[in-house]
């Protein structure tokens, strides 16, 4: 589903490459953690996957797309098959919960009747059926993140990318978010989650890909966050 072949990324403002010759593969339906300290290249890797950026060298494959070589006008197609969740939720503050989720369908031109049936379904999936008409400011952090996940998932993506989705949440709420991500993973969606959260990684016992200073440091099939720093 995702394959990086000798990928490097150098930003013009930095002497050290953000990613340095990274090769890694994530199978369809897998759940993979991407760990490493700040500045290790996790976010850069995710940015390359959704074509926010192009690699300086090497090839990034998502499904059958050569992401780096994708023509600008084809990028939307790629992103429509990928869902993204961020630490800061990125909800539109002037739209309700349901509208935020519907937004992802509206902008890709889904017909209104589809939106009307799909949005409640997915809100139900994230246990927010009762809060469809709330504004984001009325939600707790965990609820806001569940809306963001609903929005990322509503279009049934092939891959769900999560960049520190629990970074702003307390452990209990984080556990809820992880349960939700697991449930989404069980529908066959590949999930890649970048995180700092040792407790979550250790408790899930899933694949762990560790980056250190832009290089691939470790790739364990059923890993823990690790002790050696």
């Amino acid at each position: 589903m995702i394959r990086l072949e000798n990928v490097s990324k150098v930003y013009p403002t930095s002497a050290r490459p953000a990613l340095d010759d990274v090769s890694v593969e994530v199978e369809r339906g897998e759940f993979a953690f991407l760990i490493g300290p700040s500045g290790s290249g996790k976010s850069t890797l995710l940015r390359l996957l959704i074509r926010e950026d192009v690699p300086s060298s090497g090839t990034v494959w998502v499904a059958n797309w050569n992401v780096g070589g994708l023509a600008g006008r084809r990028v939307p197609r790629l992103r429509q098959r990928m869902g993204c969740v961020f630490q800061d939720f990125r909800l539109l503050p002037n739209k309700t919960v349901a509208e935020n989720v519907a937004f992802a369908l509206e902008v890709i031109g889904k017909p209104r009747h589809t939106i009307r049936t799909v949005v409640p379904e997915v809100l139900d999936l994230v246990n927010l059926a009762g809060k469809a008409d709330r504004m984001p400011s009325e939600l707790s952090g965990g609820e806001a993140q569940r809306v963001a996940i609903a929005r990322a998932f509503v279009n049934r993506p092939l891959v769900l990318l999560a960049d520190e989705p629990t970074g702003n949440l307390d452990p209990e709420t984080s556990a809820g978010i992880m349960t939700l991500l697991e449930r989404i993973n069980r529908t066959g969606t590949t999930v890649v989650m970048a995180t700092h959260d040792r407790q979550i990684v250790d408790s899930m016992r899933r694949r762990v890909v560790e980056l250190s200073a832009g290089r691939l440091a470790r790739d364990d099939n059923r890993g823990v966050y690790g002790v050696a720093r």
Binding site: R73, P76, R90, V107, R151, N155
Partner: peptide
């Protein structure tokens, strides 16, 4: 820009935004 950023993220074309 936030709105447009989110639109781009969920796969709206540049034209559409």
């Amino acid at each position: 820009r936030t709105e447009v950023g989110i639109m781009r993220l969920v796969g709206a074309s540049r034209w559409y935004t």
